[in-house]
Amino acid sequence: MASVSFSQIQKSFGKTPVLHGISLDIADGEFMVLVGPSGCGKSTLLRMLAGLEDITAGSIAIDGRVVNELDSKDRDIAMVFQSYALYPHMTVRENMGFSLRLREEKRNLIEERVAAAAKILNLGPYLDRYPRELSGGQRQRVAMGRAIVRDPKVFLFDEPLSNLDAKLRVAMRSEIKALHQRLKTTTVYVTHDQVEAMTMADRIAVMNEGRIEQLGRPLELYDRPANLFVAQFIGSPAMNVFDGAVKGGAVEALGARWPASFSKSGGLEGQRVKYGVRPEHLEPASSGIAAEIVVVEPMGAETELVVKVGDTSLIVMTRGRSTAGPGDRIFLAPDPAHAHLFDAASGLRI
């Protein structure tokens, strides 16, 4: 169990900078998710923590000890790879016990630890199989077992679920979360999937182009995205965002007036802004902004509507079923409490 601290981390590959001074403190026992589009530097950051990449500048500390110069094996971490990286010529038992064998631990201690981990992960019946004889989900669990057996200070996950099919991914998601609640080991988890981030994390660091855009608890990010990038990255279907200008306590956009609640600082008259509203906060109403339905996508519990306001397509999410069809005209009544305003130039929240 340990805290992890990144301070002013920079990384360049050759002359290309990929991380521009990342600082991030992860508390003991916390489940931290690094999320962002591919190429944002999240995996690089994780691999630097693992000791697989050199640190160009800055320092990384585990439990208060700077590990920059430490070899991977001396950092007391365990990592689960996207491809699982199981040793193909070893059985599940040997795979899981490999790190202990390298540490020259006693045979019965290895047995014991492997058995314990196998029990947690329901891998008992597969201990003598080879990785090629396992399904994707089982391999994934073996990779986790290999990490558990070591009882490390920090677990590192590098997109561990992206090779699984959708159904298995959901199952493994809760399994990993349950595991964390049981072991309480500090975890750093990298993913490009914001749903994974939202469902699993204690805190999320949203990364983009080598910087942390926002750090916070999942619902904080959802409710109060600090900037346009986070607003559009978090949430599915994504937030509707369009250009507008502040006028008389509301926003004029797409030829209509959109209600907004301004904090004391923001919202100068005439300021160019981006107006953002999540699909579920755009429910149809008896009066408001006129829109025309283009596509109706019933999903059972809710219905997704693609509508047009002017020439712009917006997504509307309504509870329950809808009797409306394409071509119908409806009215939208956005809730000002749930409207997000961002400065058009800087993209920052107003």
């Binding site: 601290s5 600082s23 050199d54 700077v66 430490l70």
Partner: peptide, 20 residues
Amino acid sequence: MSAIAIPHPPLAPKRGLSTW
């Protein structure tokens, strides 16, 4: 962001890369 001041005791440099 929480700003916990963590002391970073420097370690004897052990170049992992150069062993490899």
